[in-house]
Nucleic acid binder design. Sequence first.
DNA 1: CGCCACGGCTGCGAAATCCGCAAGACTCCG
DNA 2: CGGAGTCTTGCGGATTTCGCAGCCGTGGCG
Lengths: 171, 171
Amino acid sequence: MHSELVASRSAEHRDSRESKNGTPHLDAVSLAIIEQLQEDGRRPYAAIGKAVGLSEAAVRQRVQKLLDQGVMQIVAVTDPLTVGFRRQAMVGINVEGDVEKIAEALTDMAEVEYVVMTAGSFDILAEIVCEDDDHLLDVINKRIRALPGVRSTESFVYLKLKKQTYMWGTR
Amino acid sequence: MHSELVASRSAEHRDSRESKNGTPHLDAVSLAIIEQLQEDGRRPYAAIGKAVGLSEAAVRQRVQKLLDQGVMQIVAVTDPLTVGFRRQAMVGINVEGDVEKIAEALTDMAEVEYVVMTAGSFDILAEIVCEDDDHLLDVINKRIRALPGVRSTESFVYLKLKKQTYMWGTR
DNA sequence: CGCCACGGCTGCGAAATCCGCAAGACTCCG
DNA sequence: CGGAGTCTTGCGGATTTCGCAGCCGTGGCG
């Protein structure tokens, strides 16, 4: 079950070439495959192969590897509001001490859907998905602020989601 | 080509029942189907049917409808940093006048991947995906700040993406 | 009440797709 | 030159997808 995107670091068989930060090297063909799947995650391998100039089996193997490596995941995405989660918020967090450690702790919370370390007036931005106000309040005040090292937080409750895309590459 | 999630408003055939805000009604079975596809966007219809207690064809129809309605999209998602976009940022924006109008304008920019209207010290949060610093600078300073009505902006450049999930429901 | 239209579900075959396997081609390196 | 590793290709067989026809429960309407 590949839930996380970044965490997976199996590193079993040494790959072609890794750039120094540890991310696997992606050639133009893999990029093209990803691009295809960003348009339609269920597009058949044969169609993708035709588009990128590869055989069906080749595409299948590359896709499988991309999934195994955690470079990409194929999933259904929705507007949470449509699916019954009525409160969402972005929370900006300031940390004293080990930022990475706090980020890890946030990662472990089920309600936290998105965690990114940033430069600027916040150390961390975290997106939270909750069922209602009580739930949201609980997560922010009882759980996040309770983490040792969290100096302060600022919340931005979502009013309306206007855009959500996954198609860099199609430009 | 369903790129946007929220924008789609075809409204051709009147649906079963809509709640007052215009979002289609989702029963427990459709929720369960979405949940299945959040785990694996390529899971076969038959397997989903077995899991939610429906025939293969029924699942197929419901999935197709969910896609057509724009309730859900099945796509590949990646960490943009891995795919060659080296600069990302969240931008908080303050607006004077029509917030919705600014949000629409942001929606039309290719580099803007995520737009949400919020309550709090920003009116809008927008996520930007760029190829390099110059590109990012250009988008923020030349394009966003140039929009009439944008009072001020604050940028949070991404240092590291720690978590990215799409599995509310699997709790 | 009877009738009909409609949406959703089921159960099939036919076509397309997925998947595993084995063999060839290519690159890199000692 | 040889070998290891990876990528690619080309198959069958199992699986899945797709389209269609039929069935059923609901709701509108005379």
